[in-house]
């Protein structure tokens, strides 16, 4: 029987449209493999750089009413050290390595190294809201964004996903810039820049003071971003932001996402969330008489 959930995105064959979001668990090959076995159609590593990076001291995460605010500070052992992790992820699901760097040249080198150690695709972190001279500092500057995507595309043949920040005037402009520079797909969105202050002590709680908001508070913002980007570009979009149920996933698909990423919701629902979301999407497709998940991508645009 045909797998209704199968989807090809930028040349990657996914058995289903759920992916692990970058930054979540992706520091260990064995946990990435566990996520794939739990049902994720693709796995994305934590953002890796050319040098090891310790990240920020605790507190690095704060619970708010409808999500989490985090400033981990991109802790990672460096791309080369990750070689010893990657052997555990072989053939479980397509592996997307998230990379960050501090210049266009560094992005090109990091991309080559990531492909060399076994990435099936890359996701460029040009959207982390709490690291200096990388992440959103690049994604918020259209010229820099264009140069980074171009340099990366020139350096590797594997598909390049560009993860966008919502902390800009126009995410549509960022999306168009990335597409024009050669991006094969877009991931939308990274966290929204946020902070939390403890009123008893009058202190910002995160050690970095500023972090990024994830979780359900983000969902309507992310859905809007995906919807607007879908109208503006021809490359596939991976929806990300506050997805915790199959209904959320379907909403993103109908907004225009070809696949979706799950992160924060793992805290509440555990790793079974991937299977739960997939089963829900499949039952929905069957109930509505769709033969493939592809038929609902961008469906909401047709009812204009």
């Amino acid at each position: 029987m045909m797998n209704r959930l199968a989807i090809n995105i930028a040349g990657l064959e996914l058995s289903n449209p759920t992916m692990l979001a970058a930054g979540i668990l992706g520091i260990s090959g064995l946990t990435l493999s566990r996520v794939a076995k739990a049902g994720a159609g693709a796995i994305v590593t934590k953002s890796l750089g050319l040098q090891p990076r310790a990240g920020y001291p605790n507190p690095t995460i704060v619970q708010v009413e409808s999500g989490l605010v985090n400033a981990m500070g991109l802790p990672n052992p460096g791309i080369e050290h990750f070689t010893q992790e990657i052997k555990f992820t072989r053939s479980v699901a397509p592996l997307i390595i998230s990379i960050y760097a501090f210049s266009t040249d560094e992005f090109a080198i990091a991309a080559q190294k990531a492909v060399k150690i076994g990435a099936d695709a890359l996701e460029l972190n040009v959207s982390c809201p709490h690291a200096k001279k990388t992440g959103a500092d690049i994604g918020q500057d259209p010229k820099l964004l264009e140069e980074v995507v171009k340099a990366t595309k020139r350096s590797v043949k594997k598909p390049v996903f560009v993860k966008l920040t919502p902390n800009v005037d126009s995410i549509v402009r960022s999306a168009k810039t990335a597409e024009k520079a050669g991006a094969d797909a877009l991931t939308a969105i990274n966290t929204v820049k946020a902070m939390v202050i403890d009123i008893e002590t009058a202190k910002p709680i995160l050690s970095n003071k500023i972090g990024g908001l994830s979780g359900s508070a983000l969902k309507p913002i992310a859905v809007r971003c995906v919807y607007e980007i879908f109208d503006a570009v021809d490359i596939p979009i991976v929806g990300c932001g506050g997805i915790s149920t199959w209904q959320d996933a379907v909403e993103f698909l109908q907004a225009g996402a070809s696949a979706i990423q799950i992160g924060t919701a793992i805290a509440q629902k555990g790793l079974n969330i991937f299977t739960q979301v997939n089963e829900g999407i499949e039952a929905f497709l069957e109930k509505k008489g769709f033969h493939s998940v592809k038929e609902i991508i961008g469906l909401s645009h047709k009812s204009k």
């Binding site: 979540i24 668990l25 995460i61």
Partner: peptide, 8 residues
């Protein structure tokens, strides 16, 4: 760090 099974 996170204590809730997310950061790895």
């Amino acid at each position: 760090r996170c204590a809730i099974g997310l950061c790895g």
